[in-house]
Nucleic acid binder design. Sequence first.
DNA 1: GTGAACTGCAACAGAGCTGATGCAGATATG
DNA 2: CATATCTGCATCAGCTCTGTTGCAGTTCAC
Lengths: 191, 191
Amino acid sequence: MGQTATRTLRADAERSVRVILEAAERVLAEDPGASMEQIAAAAGVARTTIHRRFANRQALIETLASSAARQLAQAVEDGRPDTAPPLVAMHRITANVLEVKSAWAFALELPADPDSEAARLHQGIARRCIAVLERARADKLIDEAADLDWVRRVYYALLRESLQDNAAAADPDTLAARIIDTLLHGAGPRA
Amino acid sequence: MGQTATRTLRADAERSVRVILEAAERVLAEDPGASMEQIAAAAGVARTTIHRRFANRQALIETLASSAARQLAQAVEDGRPDTAPPLVAMHRITANVLEVKSAWAFALELPADPDSEAARLHQGIARRCIAVLERARADKLIDEAADLDWVRRVYYALLRESLQDNAAAADPDTLAARIIDTLLHGAGPRA
DNA sequence: GTGAACTGCAACAGAGCTGATGCAGATATG
DNA sequence: CATATCTGCATCAGCTCTGTTGCAGTTCAC
Protein backbone atom coordinates (compact mmCIF):
# COMPACT_ATOMS: atom_id res chain seq x y z
CA MET A 1 0.00 0.00 0.00
CA GLY A 2 1.10 3.58 -0.49
CA GLN A 3 2.67 5.31 2.46
CA THR A 4 1.50 8.78 1.51
CA ALA A 5 0.13 9.07 5.04
CA THR A 6 3.19 8.73 7.25
CA ARG A 7 1.82 6.85 10.23
CA THR A 8 4.98 6.83 12.38
CA LEU A 9 6.86 3.80 11.15
CA ARG A 10 8.65 1.61 13.59
CA ALA A 11 12.37 2.29 13.90
CA ASP A 12 13.46 -0.72 11.87
CA ALA A 13 10.94 0.04 9.14
CA GLU A 14 12.18 3.58 8.90
CA ARG A 15 15.70 2.25 8.54
CA SER A 16 14.52 -0.08 5.77
CA VAL A 17 13.10 2.83 3.86
CA ARG A 18 16.38 4.69 4.10
CA VAL A 19 18.40 1.67 3.00
CA ILE A 20 16.06 1.11 0.06
CA LEU A 21 16.29 4.71 -1.09
CA GLU A 22 20.07 4.66 -0.93
CA ALA A 23 20.21 1.42 -2.87
CA ALA A 24 17.76 2.75 -5.45
CA GLU A 25 19.97 5.77 -6.03
CA ARG A 26 23.06 3.62 -6.50
CA VAL A 27 21.42 1.06 -8.77
CA LEU A 28 19.34 3.42 -10.86
CA ALA A 29 22.26 5.78 -11.38
CA GLU A 30 24.03 2.94 -13.15
CA ASP A 31 20.97 1.61 -14.97
CA PRO A 32 17.79 3.70 -14.92
CA GLY A 33 15.83 0.70 -16.11
CA ALA A 34 16.96 -1.62 -13.35
CA SER A 35 14.31 -3.88 -11.82
CA MET A 36 12.91 -3.75 -8.31
CA GLU A 37 14.64 -7.08 -7.76
CA GLN A 38 18.05 -5.51 -8.41
CA ILE A 39 17.29 -2.63 -6.09
CA ALA A 40 16.14 -5.02 -3.40
CA ALA A 41 19.31 -7.06 -3.74
CA ALA A 42 21.48 -3.97 -3.47
CA ALA A 43 19.55 -2.94 -0.37
CA GLY A 44 19.91 -6.37 1.19
CA VAL A 45 16.16 -6.66 1.42
CA ALA A 46 13.43 -8.84 -0.06
CA ARG A 47 11.63 -7.44 -3.06
CA THR A 48 8.31 -7.72 -1.24
CA THR A 49 9.60 -5.39 1.43
CA ILE A 50 10.02 -2.66 -1.15
CA HIS A 51 6.49 -3.18 -2.37
CA ARG A 52 5.22 -2.96 1.21
CA ARG A 53 6.81 0.46 1.64
CA PHE A 54 6.19 1.82 -1.84
CA ALA A 55 3.02 1.25 -3.78
CA ASN A 56 4.92 0.97 -7.04
CA ARG A 57 8.06 1.95 -8.86
CA GLN A 58 6.66 5.43 -9.52
CA ALA A 59 6.06 6.06 -5.81
CA LEU A 60 9.57 4.90 -4.95
CA ILE A 61 11.09 7.23 -7.47
CA GLU A 62 8.99 10.18 -6.36
CA THR A 63 10.01 9.66 -2.77
CA LEU A 64 13.62 9.39 -3.90
CA ALA A 65 13.33 12.66 -5.80
CA SER A 66 11.74 14.60 -2.94
CA SER A 67 14.18 13.25 -0.42
CA ALA A 68 17.15 14.29 -2.53
CA ALA A 69 15.62 17.67 -3.36
CA ARG A 70 15.14 18.37 0.33
CA GLN A 71 18.79 17.65 0.99
CA LEU A 72 19.79 19.88 -1.87
CA ALA A 73 17.68 22.74 -0.55
CA GLN A 74 19.34 22.30 2.82
CA ALA A 75 22.78 22.41 1.20
CA VAL A 76 21.90 25.72 -0.40
CA GLU A 77 20.54 27.22 2.81
CA ASP A 78 23.66 26.15 4.67
CA GLY A 79 25.62 28.47 2.38
CA ARG A 80 23.74 31.51 3.79
CA PRO A 81 22.64 32.69 0.37
CA ASP A 82 21.30 36.06 1.45
CA THR A 83 23.55 37.08 4.30
CA ALA A 84 27.07 35.95 3.37
CA PRO A 85 29.02 38.09 0.87
CA PRO A 86 28.03 36.92 -2.63
CA LEU A 87 31.37 35.40 -3.55
CA VAL A 88 31.59 33.56 -0.25
CA ALA A 89 28.03 32.33 -0.56
CA MET A 90 28.67 31.12 -4.09
CA HIS A 91 31.70 29.16 -3.03
CA ARG A 92 30.07 27.63 0.02
CA ILE A 93 26.86 26.76 -1.78
CA THR A 94 28.76 25.24 -4.67
CA ALA A 95 30.86 23.03 -2.42
CA ASN A 96 27.81 21.93 -0.44
CA VAL A 97 25.80 21.23 -3.55
CA LEU A 98 28.61 19.21 -5.10
CA GLU A 99 28.60 16.89 -2.13
CA VAL A 100 24.85 16.36 -2.19
CA LYS A 101 24.74 15.99 -5.96
CA SER A 102 27.51 13.43 -6.05
CA ALA A 103 25.56 11.29 -3.58
CA TRP A 104 22.15 11.73 -5.25
CA ALA A 105 23.03 12.29 -8.89
CA PHE A 106 20.27 10.12 -10.30
CA ALA A 107 17.52 11.42 -8.04
CA LEU A 108 18.39 15.04 -8.73
CA GLU A 109 18.44 14.67 -12.50
CA LEU A 110 14.99 13.13 -12.62
CA PRO A 111 12.50 15.07 -14.72
CA ALA A 112 10.10 16.16 -11.98
CA ASP A 113 6.35 16.14 -12.39
CA PRO A 114 5.41 19.88 -12.42
CA ASP A 115 3.27 19.67 -9.30
CA SER A 116 5.39 17.33 -7.23
CA GLU A 117 7.15 18.28 -4.03
CA ALA A 118 10.47 17.83 -5.79
CA ALA A 119 9.50 20.30 -8.49
CA ARG A 120 8.47 22.90 -5.92
CA LEU A 121 11.73 22.47 -4.07
CA HIS A 122 13.74 22.81 -7.25
CA GLN A 123 11.87 25.98 -8.14
CA GLY A 124 12.64 27.41 -4.73
CA ILE A 125 16.30 26.52 -5.14
CA ALA A 126 16.40 28.18 -8.54
CA ARG A 127 14.95 31.36 -7.05
CA ARG A 128 17.53 31.28 -4.29
CA CYS A 129 20.20 30.83 -6.93
CA ILE A 130 18.99 33.80 -8.93
CA ALA A 131 18.89 35.90 -5.79
CA VAL A 132 22.54 35.17 -5.08
CA LEU A 133 23.44 36.03 -8.66
CA GLU A 134 21.60 39.34 -8.29
CA ARG A 135 23.60 40.15 -5.22
CA ALA A 136 26.76 39.25 -7.11
CA ARG A 137 25.72 41.51 -9.95
CA ALA A 138 25.10 44.34 -7.49
CA ASP A 139 28.69 43.82 -6.34
CA LYS A 140 29.96 44.14 -9.93
CA LEU A 141 31.01 40.50 -10.05
CA ILE A 142 28.61 39.88 -12.91
CA ASP A 143 28.04 42.03 -15.97
CA GLU A 144 25.12 44.44 -15.61
CA ALA A 145 23.63 43.33 -18.91
CA ALA A 146 23.89 39.63 -18.13
CA ASP A 147 20.82 37.41 -18.48
CA LEU A 148 20.75 35.88 -15.01
CA ASP A 149 18.59 32.99 -16.12
CA TRP A 150 21.25 32.00 -18.63
CA VAL A 151 23.93 32.48 -16.00
CA ARG A 152 22.05 30.17 -13.67
CA ARG A 153 21.73 27.54 -16.38
CA VAL A 154 25.42 27.79 -17.14
CA TYR A 155 26.11 27.38 -13.43
CA TYR A 156 23.99 24.23 -13.28
CA ALA A 157 25.76 22.91 -16.37
CA LEU A 158 29.14 23.48 -14.78
CA LEU A 159 28.03 21.64 -11.65
CA ARG A 160 26.83 18.71 -13.73
CA GLU A 161 30.00 18.60 -15.78
CA SER A 162 32.20 18.68 -12.68
CA LEU A 163 30.49 15.56 -11.38
CA GLN A 164 30.55 13.64 -14.64
CA ASP A 165 33.80 11.73 -14.76
CA ASN A 166 34.38 12.29 -11.11
CA ALA A 167 37.07 9.59 -11.14
CA ALA A 168 39.39 11.90 -9.27
CA ALA A 169 36.60 12.60 -6.76
CA ALA A 170 38.51 15.77 -6.10
CA ASP A 171 38.03 17.96 -3.08
CA PRO A 172 34.70 19.81 -3.34
CA ASP A 173 36.35 23.11 -2.51
CA THR A 174 38.82 22.76 -5.38
CA LEU A 175 36.06 21.88 -7.81
CA ALA A 176 33.92 24.73 -6.50
CA ALA A 177 36.74 27.19 -7.03
CA ARG A 178 37.11 26.12 -10.64
CA ILE A 179 33.38 26.30 -11.24
CA ILE A 180 33.02 29.83 -9.87
CA ASP A 181 36.12 30.98 -11.68
CA THR A 182 34.89 29.60 -14.97
CA LEU A 183 31.42 30.98 -14.42
CA LEU A 184 32.70 34.49 -13.82
CA HIS A 185 35.66 34.65 -16.18
CA GLY A 186 35.33 31.88 -18.75
CA ALA A 187 38.44 30.53 -20.42
CA GLY A 188 39.79 33.81 -21.74
CA PRO A 189 43.06 35.43 -20.62
CA ARG A 190 43.08 37.09 -17.21
CA ALA A 191 43.70 40.77 -16.65
CA MET B 1 19.57 -11.41 -39.10
CA GLY B 2 22.20 -8.83 -38.25
CA GLN B 3 23.08 -6.50 -41.08
CA THR B 4 26.68 -5.96 -40.03
CA ALA B 5 27.68 -6.89 -43.59
CA THR B 6 26.03 -4.25 -45.77
CA ARG B 7 25.12 -6.19 -48.90
CA THR B 8 23.62 -3.37 -50.95
CA LEU B 9 20.04 -3.11 -49.79
CA ARG B 10 17.32 -2.39 -52.24
CA ALA B 11 16.34 1.29 -52.46
CA ASP B 12 13.11 0.92 -50.50
CA ALA B 13 14.83 -1.12 -47.81
CA GLU B 14 17.46 1.54 -47.40
CA ARG B 15 14.73 4.09 -47.03
CA SER B 16 13.08 1.94 -44.37
CA VAL B 17 16.28 1.86 -42.38
CA ARG B 18 16.50 5.63 -42.47
CA VAL B 19 12.88 6.09 -41.45
CA ILE B 20 13.35 3.65 -38.58
CA LEU B 21 16.45 5.40 -37.31
CA GLU B 22 14.73 8.77 -37.40
CA ALA B 23 11.72 7.40 -35.57
CA ALA B 24 13.94 5.70 -33.00
CA GLU B 25 15.65 9.00 -32.27
CA ARG B 26 12.35 10.80 -31.81
CA VAL B 27 10.72 8.14 -29.67
CA LEU B 28 13.72 7.23 -27.54
CA ALA B 29 14.51 10.88 -26.87
CA GLU B 30 11.15 11.17 -25.19
CA ASP B 31 11.27 7.77 -23.47
CA PRO B 32 14.54 5.83 -23.51
CA GLY B 33 12.69 2.70 -22.45
CA ALA B 34 10.17 2.79 -25.28
CA SER B 35 9.36 -0.54 -26.93
CA MET B 36 10.18 -1.62 -30.46
CA GLU B 37 6.44 -1.52 -31.10
CA GLN B 38 6.33 2.20 -30.33
CA ILE B 39 9.31 2.88 -32.54
CA ALA B 40 7.74 0.89 -35.36
CA ALA B 41 4.50 2.81 -35.02
CA ALA B 42 6.33 6.14 -35.14
CA ALA B 43 8.17 4.97 -38.23
CA GLY B 44 4.96 3.84 -39.92
CA VAL B 45 6.38 0.34 -40.23
CA ALA B 46 5.59 -3.10 -38.88
CA ARG B 47 7.57 -4.21 -35.87
CA THR B 48 8.81 -7.25 -37.75
CA THR B 49 10.40 -4.98 -40.32
CA ILE B 50 12.60 -3.50 -37.62
CA HIS B 51 13.64 -6.95 -36.51
CA ARG B 52 14.47 -7.85 -40.08
CA ARG B 53 16.86 -4.91 -40.37
CA PHE B 54 18.29 -4.98 -36.88
CA ALA B 55 19.15 -8.13 -35.01
CA ASN B 56 17.98 -6.64 -31.72
CA ARG B 57 17.45 -3.46 -29.79
CA GLN B 58 21.14 -3.20 -29.04
CA ALA B 59 22.06 -3.34 -32.72
CA LEU B 60 19.49 -0.69 -33.58
CA ILE B 61 20.85 1.63 -30.95
CA GLU B 62 24.44 1.09 -32.01
CA THR B 63 23.60 1.88 -35.60
CA LEU B 64 21.74 4.96 -34.41
CA ALA B 65 24.76 6.07 -32.40
CA SER B 66 27.26 5.60 -35.24
CA SER B 67 25.02 7.28 -37.76
CA ALA B 68 24.60 10.32 -35.54
CA ALA B 69 28.28 10.42 -34.65
CA ARG B 70 29.20 10.40 -38.32
CA GLN B 71 26.95 13.38 -38.94
CA LEU B 72 28.46 15.17 -35.99
CA ALA B 73 31.98 14.58 -37.27
CA GLN B 74 30.91 15.97 -40.62
CA ALA B 75 29.46 19.05 -38.94
CA VAL B 76 32.78 19.68 -37.26
CA GLU B 77 34.78 19.22 -40.45
CA ASP B 78 32.49 21.60 -42.29
CA GLY B 79 33.65 24.32 -39.91
CA ARG B 80 37.23 24.00 -41.26
CA PRO B 81 38.72 23.44 -37.83
CA ASP B 82 42.35 23.74 -38.84
CA THR B 83 42.32 26.31 -41.60
CA ALA B 84 39.76 28.96 -40.66
CA PRO B 85 40.76 31.55 -38.04
CA PRO B 86 40.09 30.03 -34.60
CA LEU B 87 37.24 32.34 -33.67
CA VAL B 88 35.54 31.84 -37.01
CA ALA B 89 36.00 28.09 -36.82
CA MET B 90 34.57 28.01 -33.31
CA HIS B 91 31.49 29.91 -34.37
CA ARG B 92 30.90 27.88 -37.48
CA ILE B 93 31.51 24.55 -35.77
CA THR B 94 29.25 25.50 -32.91
CA ALA B 95 26.39 26.48 -35.17
CA ASN B 96 26.77 23.30 -37.24
CA VAL B 97 26.98 21.10 -34.19
CA LEU B 98 23.91 22.70 -32.66
CA GLU B 99 21.87 21.75 -35.68
CA VAL B 100 23.04 18.15 -35.70
CA LYS B 101 22.71 17.77 -31.94
CA SER B 102 19.19 19.12 -31.89
CA ALA B 103 18.18 16.52 -34.45
CA TRP B 104 20.05 13.62 -32.82
CA ALA B 105 20.08 14.54 -29.15
CA PHE B 106 19.33 11.07 -27.88
CA ALA B 107 21.75 9.23 -30.14
CA LEU B 108 24.60 11.58 -29.31
CA GLU B 109 24.16 11.36 -25.55
CA LEU B 110 24.29 7.58 -25.53
CA PRO B 111 27.08 6.14 -23.41
CA ALA B 112 29.17 4.55 -26.14
CA ASP B 113 30.82 1.18 -25.81
CA PRO B 114 34.57 1.98 -25.68
CA ASP B 115 35.40 0.05 -28.85
CA SER B 116 32.40 0.97 -30.96
CA GLU B 117 32.55 3.04 -34.11
CA ALA B 118 30.63 5.79 -32.30
CA ALA B 119 33.23 5.92 -29.54
CA ARG B 120 36.06 6.21 -32.05
CA LEU B 121 34.28 9.01 -33.85
CA HIS B 122 33.64 10.88 -30.63
CA GLN B 123 37.27 10.57 -29.68
CA GLY B 124 38.30 11.98 -33.02
CA ILE B 125 35.89 14.85 -32.58
CA ALA B 126 37.25 15.58 -29.12
CA ARG B 127 40.78 15.72 -30.55
CA ARG B 128 39.62 18.08 -33.27
CA CYS B 129 38.01 20.20 -30.62
CA ILE B 130 41.16 20.37 -28.53
CA ALA B 131 43.13 21.30 -31.63
CA VAL B 132 40.88 24.28 -32.30
CA LEU B 133 41.19 25.35 -28.69
CA GLU B 134 44.97 25.17 -28.98
CA ARG B 135 44.86 27.42 -31.99
CA ALA B 136 42.62 29.80 -30.07
CA ARG B 137 45.07 29.78 -27.21
CA ALA B 138 47.92 30.55 -29.58
CA ASP B 139 45.90 33.58 -30.68
CA LYS B 140 45.57 34.77 -27.04
CA LEU B 141 41.84 34.09 -27.04
CA ILE B 142 42.28 31.59 -24.22
CA ASP B 143 44.40 31.94 -21.12
CA GLU B 144 47.84 30.39 -21.44
CA ALA B 145 47.45 28.46 -18.21
CA ALA B 146 44.02 27.09 -19.10
CA ASP B 147 43.39 23.35 -18.86
CA LEU B 148 42.12 22.69 -22.38
CA ASP B 149 40.45 19.47 -21.41
CA TRP B 150 38.35 21.34 -18.88
CA VAL B 151 37.65 24.03 -21.44
CA ARG B 152 36.45 21.41 -23.86
CA ARG B 153 34.19 19.86 -21.24
CA VAL B 154 32.76 23.27 -20.41
CA TYR B 155 32.17 23.81 -24.11
CA TYR B 156 30.28 20.53 -24.39
CA ALA B 157 28.25 21.45 -21.31
CA LEU B 158 27.29 24.79 -22.83
CA LEU B 159 26.19 23.07 -26.02
CA ARG B 160 24.06 20.65 -24.05
CA GLU B 161 22.53 23.39 -21.97
CA SER B 162 21.69 25.47 -25.02
CA LEU B 163 19.67 22.61 -26.44
CA GLN B 164 17.87 21.74 -23.25
CA ASP B 165 14.72 23.82 -23.12
CA ASN B 166 15.03 24.70 -26.73
CA ALA B 167 11.42 25.90 -26.74
CA ALA B 168 12.51 29.05 -28.49
CA ALA B 169 14.43 26.95 -31.03
CA ALA B 170 16.42 30.07 -31.58
CA ASP B 171 18.67 30.67 -34.55
CA PRO B 172 21.80 28.49 -34.28
CA ASP B 173 24.04 31.46 -34.97
CA THR B 174 22.58 33.41 -32.08
CA LEU B 175 22.96 30.48 -29.74
CA ALA B 176 26.48 29.87 -30.99
CA ALA B 177 27.43 33.47 -30.32
CA ARG B 178 26.24 33.21 -26.76
CA ILE B 179 28.05 29.93 -26.22
CA ILE B 180 31.38 31.21 -27.47
CA ASP B 181 30.99 34.45 -25.59
CA THR B 182 30.24 32.63 -22.36
CA LEU B 183 33.03 30.15 -22.93
CA LEU B 184 35.63 32.86 -23.41
CA HIS B 185 34.42 35.53 -20.99
CA GLY B 186 32.01 33.94 -18.52
CA ALA B 187 29.40 36.07 -16.82
CA GLY B 188 31.73 38.69 -15.38
CA PRO B 189 31.77 42.37 -16.39
CA ARG B 190 33.30 43.22 -19.77
CA ALA B 191 36.30 45.44 -20.25
C1' DG C 1 6.69 -9.97 28.42
C1' DT C 2 3.08 -9.36 25.38
C1' DG C 3 1.10 -7.75 21.32
C1' DA C 4 1.67 -5.33 17.29
C1' DA C 5 4.57 -4.33 13.60
C1' DC C 6 7.91 -5.85 10.51
C1' DT C 7 10.44 -9.13 7.42
C1' DG C 8 11.71 -13.13 4.38
C1' DC C 9 10.13 -16.70 1.61
C1' DA C 10 7.37 -19.01 -1.73
C1' DA C 11 4.11 -18.83 -4.94
C1' DC C 12 0.76 -16.76 -8.00
C1' DA C 13 -1.59 -14.33 -11.94
C1' DG C 14 -1.26 -10.85 -15.22
C1' DA C 15 0.93 -8.03 -18.33
C1' DG C 16 4.27 -6.54 -21.77
C1' DC C 17 8.18 -7.19 -24.55
C1' DT C 18 11.20 -9.79 -27.60
C1' DG C 19 12.59 -12.41 -31.38
C1' DA C 20 11.15 -15.84 -34.82
C1' DT C 21 8.36 -17.88 -38.62
C1' DG C 22 5.40 -18.56 -42.66
C1' DC C 23 2.77 -16.66 -46.11
C1' DA C 24 0.66 -13.59 -49.42
C1' DG C 25 0.99 -9.36 -51.74
C1' DA C 26 3.61 -5.33 -53.30
C1' DT C 27 7.77 -3.23 -55.31
C1' DA C 28 12.26 -2.47 -57.19
C1' DT C 29 15.81 -3.97 -60.43
C1' DG C 30 17.92 -5.88 -64.43
C1' DC D 1 8.53 -8.66 -67.77
C1' DA D 2 10.48 -11.85 -64.71
C1' DT D 3 12.61 -12.54 -60.47
C1' DA D 4 14.54 -11.52 -56.25
C1' DT D 5 13.71 -8.59 -52.56
C1' DC D 6 10.94 -6.35 -49.38
C1' DT D 7 6.84 -5.64 -46.41
C1' DG D 8 2.60 -6.38 -43.54
C1' DC D 9 0.03 -9.47 -40.96
C1' DA D 10 -0.95 -13.08 -37.90
C1' DT D 11 0.83 -16.02 -34.63
C1' DC D 12 3.89 -18.30 -31.56
C1' DA D 13 6.97 -19.47 -27.50
C1' DG D 14 9.64 -17.70 -23.98
C1' DC D 15 11.18 -14.49 -20.91
C1' DT D 16 11.12 -10.82 -17.35
C1' DC D 17 8.93 -7.74 -14.53
C1' DT D 18 5.25 -6.24 -11.48
C1' DG D 19 2.24 -6.41 -7.73
C1' DT D 20 -0.25 -9.40 -4.41
C1' DT D 21 -1.09 -12.83 -0.86
C1' DG D 22 -0.41 -16.07 3.03
C1' DC D 23 2.41 -17.72 6.50
C1' DA D 24 6.01 -18.34 9.80
C1' DG D 25 9.55 -16.24 12.32
C1' DT D 26 11.80 -12.06 14.20
C1' DT D 27 12.04 -7.51 16.30
C1' DC D 28 10.52 -3.35 18.30
C1' DA D 29 7.62 -0.66 21.71
C1' DC D 30 4.87 -0.01 25.58
